[in-house]
């Protein structure tokens, strides 16, 4: 299998009182086994909706189409509800920013883990119990037997996220989708959880689709990066190229807008003017042009396409081929 996940021309439409909006607009990308792909973006970029669409968790109002999603070689967009539920957990599992959205407050960790194990690993009874403890240890929880008897509220945020990861890996999924998994955590706990995700990748060749707004997390984790803005991919390349030679003015702007800890002299951050556009009121032409320092006439009238600016480096900008916009 060449790719764990293949997404082709995915569009998600939400119907609202003020007409249809498209939080995800014609997205294509693929994830290889064992690869960590980061989707980086801000509010309204479509990064979370993309992740929900993959497992068909959009709920009422959100419609996929057109577009194709292939998970572990199988077309997901044509599957029934039951088939989908099976694919979730076995082929792909998801972890969210807030672990309590996944955990049931009135069941013990053991109850919930055994349920996940029954569904995705087909084990019951003693075997399920032993596997539950093993999963917790895999997720870095030393006192596994004790934690199995505890309720979610008695655990810290970091411990809860470890439990959710343990549940997610019960079916040995080929792909783990993590939507801002460390955003609600303190930095020392974040470092632990990121290390855990890296270990899953090395030990089990688990592919990870990591959704984040934090360029620091991207630099720590990604093999490849998709930068999203207002529902579209605006840049895609490997992590080193992205940090060495970002081509899209938005990516460049983001990098200069984040304060870095350095012992150099005091400096002034470079702010991106304006704010993230509302997906119901997107500007004409390039969606970034109202905030772009280099915007030209063409950018205001005509939407740029995502095209290769260098080998394996895609960018959606009319000016990217020219001398770097400063």
């Amino acid at each position: 299998m060449k790719h764990v996940l293949e997404i082709e021309e995915l569009t998600v439409t939400f119907r609202t009182e003020n007409g249809d909006v498209r939080p995800v607009d014609d997205i294509s990308f693929a994830v290889r086994p064992g690869e960590t792909v980061c989707i980086v973006g801000e509010s309204g970029s479509g990064k979370s909706v993309t992740s929900l669409a993959i497992l068909n968790l959009l709920g009422k109002g959100g419609e996929i189409g057109p577009g194709r999603i292939r998970l572990a070689g199988e077309q997901l967009t044509e599957k029934s509800g039951a088939e989908l539920r099976k694919a979730r957990g076995k082929d792909a599992a998801m972890i969210f920013q807030e672990p309590m959205t996944t955990l049931n407050p009135v069941l013990t960790i053991g109850d919930q883990l055994r349920e996940a194990i029954r569904l995705h690993a087909g084990l019951r009874g003693k075997a399920a119990n032993a596997y539950a403890a093993e999963l917790l240890r895999e997720a870095g929880i030393a006192r596994a037997e004790q934690v199995l008897k505890q309720y979610p509220h008695s655990l810290s945020g970091g411990m809860r996220q470890r439990v959710v990861i343990a549940m997610a890996i019960a079916g040995k999924p080929k792909l783990l989708i993590a939507d801002e998994p460390t955003t609600a955590l303190d930095v020392t706990v974040q470092a632990q959880i990121l290390a855990l995700l890296k270990r899953l990748r090395t030990d089990h060749d688990t592919a990870i689709l990591l959704i984040t707004h934090d360029l620091g997390v991207v630099a720590e984790m990604a093999d490849r990066v998709l930068v999203m803005y207002a529902g579209q991919i605006v840049e895609e390349t490997d992590v080193f190229t992205l940090f060495d030679r970002p081509l899209h003015p938005y990516t460049r702007g983001l990098m200069k807008a984040v304060p870095a800890i350095s012992d150099g002299p005091d400096y002034r951050l470079e702010a991106i003017p304006g704010s993230v556009p509302d997906i119901g009121r997107l500007p004409q032409g390039c969606r970034f042009h109202p905030r772009c320092p280099a915007a030209a006439d063409r950018c205001r009238g005509e939407m740029p396409t995502l095209t290769p600016a260098a080998p394996a480096h895609l960018v959606r900008c009319w000016l990217a081929g020219q001398s770097p916009a400063s």
């Binding site: 720590e220 080193f240 940090f243 990098m255």
Partner: peptide
């Protein structure tokens, strides 16, 4: 605390 903060430089990962 300083050490655990992510660094925006993939070469230091």
């Amino acid at each position: 605390l300083l050490n655990a903060s992510p660094v925006s430089d993939p070469r230091r990962r």
